[in-house]
Every structure is written in C-alpha cells, then in structure tokens.
Deep mutational scan, measured.
Amino acid sequence: KMTIRVKGKELARRIAKEMKDRNLKVEIHEHGDEVILEIE
C-alpha cells in the first residue's frame, strides 16, 4: 500500500487514471488544496 500527497486536483486525477490503467486500486481523499491518493 502506497500513499501519495499531491497539490492540485488536476494532477491527482491524472495520477489516479494512470494507476487505474495499471489495474491498481486507488482511493482519493481530498483535503482542500491537497489530495491524498492511497494506492493498493
């Protein structure tokens, strides 16, 4: 399990899509400006 902190929703969406393309499970937690992606 891996956690990534990202500034900006646009970048977070791009990373999430990339991870889904690799068949990984992604959970997205938004905290205002910061987005936390949990990847399994």
Rank of each mutant, 00 (worst) to 15 (best):
residue 15 I to K: 00
residue 23 N to S: 07
residue 24 L to K: 04
residue 5 R to Y: 06
residue 35 V to L: 09
residue 20 K to N: 11
residue 6 V to F: 04
residue 29 H to D: 04
residue 35 V to F: 15
residue 39 I to N: 00
residue 11 L to V: 10
residue 37 L to S: 01
residue 2 M to E: 12
residue 40 E to M: 13
residue 27 E to S: 13
residue 36 I to D: 03
residue 12 A to M: 02
residue 33 D to W: 05
residue 32 G to W: 05
residue 31 H to L: 14
residue 24 L to G: 02
residue 7 K to D: 04
residue 2 M to D: 10
residue 39 I to Y: 04
residue 30 E to A: 10
residue 22 R to S: 05
residue 24 L to C: 12
residue 2 M to A: 12
residue 16 A to G: 03
residue 26 V to R: 00
residue 6 V to T: 03
residue 10 E to Q: 07
residue 36 I to H: 05
residue 20 K to T: 13
residue 1 K to V: 05
residue 35 V to T: 09
residue 22 R to V: 04
residue 1 K to R: 13
residue 14 R to G: 05
residue 30 E to N: 08
residue 20 K to H: 09
residue 35 V to I: 14
residue 29 H to T: 13
residue 12 A to P: 03
residue 8 G to A: 05
residue 40 E to R: 11
residue 1 K to L: 04
residue 10 E to V: 03
residue 33 D to A: 06
residue 2 M to Y: 05
residue 34 E to N: 09
residue 28 I to A: 05
residue 22 R to I: 08
residue 35 V to P: 00
residue 37 L to N: 00
residue 24 L to M: 11
residue 11 L to F: 02
residue 31 H to P: 01
residue 10 E to S: 07
residue 3 T to V: 15
residue 15 I to Q: 00
residue 14 R to E: 11
residue 38 E to Q: 10
residue 24 L to T: 03
residue 21 D to I: 04
residue 8 G to D: 15
residue 9 K to W: 10
residue 1 K to W: 08
residue 35 V to A: 04
residue 17 K to W: 00
residue 17 K to G: 06
residue 39 I to A: 03
residue 26 V to E: 00
residue 37 L to H: 00
residue 7 K to S: 06
residue 33 D to Q: 05
residue 5 R to V: 15
residue 38 E to G: 03
residue 3 T to L: 12
residue 14 R to T: 10
residue 32 G to F: 07
residue 33 D to V: 06
residue 26 V to S: 00
residue 2 M to G: 10
residue 21 D to W: 02
residue 8 G to H: 09
residue 32 G to V: 05
residue 25 K to I: 11
residue 37 L to G: 00
residue 1 K to A: 10
residue 29 H to F: 14
residue 38 E to R: 08
residue 36 I to Q: 03
residue 27 E to N: 11
residue 25 K to R: 12
residue 11 L to H: 08
residue 30 E to L: 12
residue 13 R to W: 05
residue 18 E to I: 14
residue 4 I to G: 03
residue 10 E to H: 09
residue 40 E to T: 15
residue 32 G to L: 07
residue 7 K to I: 11
residue 2 M to L: 13
residue 37 L to F: 06
residue 25 K to H: 12
residue 36 I to G: 00
residue 28 I to D: 00
residue 15 I to F: 04
residue 22 R to N: 08
residue 7 K to G: 05
residue 19 M to K: 01
residue 23 N to K: 08
residue 34 E to F: 15
residue 14 R to L: 12
residue 21 D to E: 13
residue 4 I to P: 04
residue 18 E to P: 00
residue 17 K to R: 09
residue 14 R to K: 13
residue 8 G to V: 08
residue 32 G to E: 09
residue 33 D to N: 08
residue 35 V to K: 02
residue 39 I to D: 01
residue 22 R to A: 10
residue 19 M to E: 01
residue 3 T to E: 12
residue 30 E to Q: 09
residue 37 L to C: 03
residue 25 K to T: 10
residue 40 E to G: 12
residue 28 I to N: 01
residue 40 E to L: 12
residue 7 K to F: 06
residue 23 N to A: 06
residue 28 I to S: 04
residue 33 D to M: 06
residue 23 N to Q: 07
residue 13 R to N: 14
residue 14 R to A: 13
residue 11 L to G: 04
residue 4 I to S: 02
residue 1 K to F: 08
residue 37 L to I: 13
residue 30 E to S: 08
residue 25 K to D: 06
residue 28 I to V: 09
residue 12 A to Q: 02
